[in-house]
Simulated scan of single mutants.
Amino acid sequence: MTQGRRVLVTGGASGLGAALVEAFAARGDRVVSTDLAGADLKLDVTSDDDWERARDWVEEQWGGLDVLVNNAGIAAGGRIDVAGFDEWQRGIEINLYGVVRGCRTFVPMMKRQEGGHIVNTASMAGLVHPPAMAPYTAAKAGVVAMSESLHFELSPWRIKVQAVCPSYFRTNLASSFSGADPVPAVMIGRLVDKSPLGAEDIAAEVIAGMETDDPLILTDEVGRVAYRDKHADPDTYRKQQHGYGAKIRALTDSAETPNHTSQETDR
């Protein structure tokens, strides 16, 4: 296993990002953590200027980059007639275009090096698409699709690209949800709270998955089963998702408060 890689992680101050920083450092890599605050470098993934400063730092301090982890993201979601267009724009700007900016910033450097590794944090929501989550699933599906395209596009330069698709795990992601629709926030919060997995478990699976040539890193059994069943048993998958849609309709018709919504969702 190659030691001492030069690694940059976005969204590295908390959650999965912080766990990844620790996991890379534990294996002997040199890691720079970036985030809006509380990290080694300040990096707003929506800012071209911040990305340029991060690239300049890498060039000055390390002379190159071996691993780019585009991990920064926010929770998003909402019914199509409830979530505002501004919510769609913010989610896509951070969750999708933030990844695009990271790749565009560091791919030229990696091409000059004739090698590199890009890991893009997507989500199981990029592969399995539940109702009332379209602003999130659309962005994360975009990350999955882009990562697969780049996996093949950049392979002649010996640059590997992978998308990480965890299902729900215990993290602070739900706290970043600030949308107008309470339904997805409640759904996300309940699923996160019930998960037996923490960020450190997902980070360990990411490190292991980077040793494979699969464009997808599926980090947990729940996600692997959901992805497999969507393709192996599409009738059951559709029935399940229609059921979630019906539950959302019932909640809408009952005009429940968010607290009542939590009780209904848990049934």
Rank of each mutant, 00 (worst) to 15 (best):
A72H: 01
N172V: 05
L216V: 07
K111P: 07
A25D: 09
P156R: 08
F169A: 09
A39M: 08
L8W: 04
A83K: 03
G11R: 05
P108N: 10
A203C: 10
V164S: 10
R224Y: 00
A185Q: 15
W57P: 00
A83V: 14
G198M: 04
G126M: 11
A18R: 13
H129R: 12
A203P: 07
L20C: 02
C165Y: 03
P130E: 08
C103A: 12
D29E: 06
E205T: 04
S167T: 10
L150F: 12
M1Y: 03
G245W: 07
W57L: 11
G126W: 05
T261I: 15
D86Q: 13
G77F: 04
D35M: 10
K42Q: 15
P108R: 09
D81N: 12
D48S: 12
A125G: 15
D235P: 00
V69F: 06
G209F: 11
M110E: 04
L251N: 10
L127N: 01
T10L: 03
L218Y: 00
D266V: 11
T252A: 09
I80V: 13
G102D: 00
G126S: 11
G198C: 09
E114Y: 05
A185F: 09
I92M: 12
G126Q: 08
S47M: 01
V164L: 10
D253T: 08
R104Q: 15
D214H: 12
D40L: 11
I80G: 00
V186Q: 03
E60K: 15
L8I: 10
L36S: 01
I74P: 05
K230W: 02
G28N: 07
L65K: 01
M1A: 13
E200H: 15
K140T: 02
E221R: 13
L68E: 07
V144M: 01
M210F: 07
P184L: 04
I94K: 02
A145Y: 01
V31L: 07
A203S: 13
W57K: 04
V183T: 08
T171Q: 03
D193R: 15
R53L: 14
V192N: 05
R55Q: 13
E211L: 08
W157Q: 08
T236A: 15
V144K: 04
V9D: 12
R224K: 15
Y227K: 14
V45H: 06
R228Q: 15
P215C: 02
W157T: 06
Q89A: 14
P131I: 04
R249K: 10
D229S: 11
V100F: 11
F24N: 04
N172E: 15
I94Q: 06
R90V: 06
V144Y: 08
R267T: 13
D220T: 06
G38V: 09
L65S: 13
T236H: 10
A39P: 00
Y97R: 13
V45E: 02
D214Q: 10
G243P: 06
G223Y: 09
V45C: 03
N70T: 08
A54T: 02
R170W: 04
W157A: 14
I94M: 03
A13W: 04
L41P: 05
H242Q: 14
A132W: 09
W57E: 00
R101Y: 06
A54F: 01
D266A: 14
E60W: 00
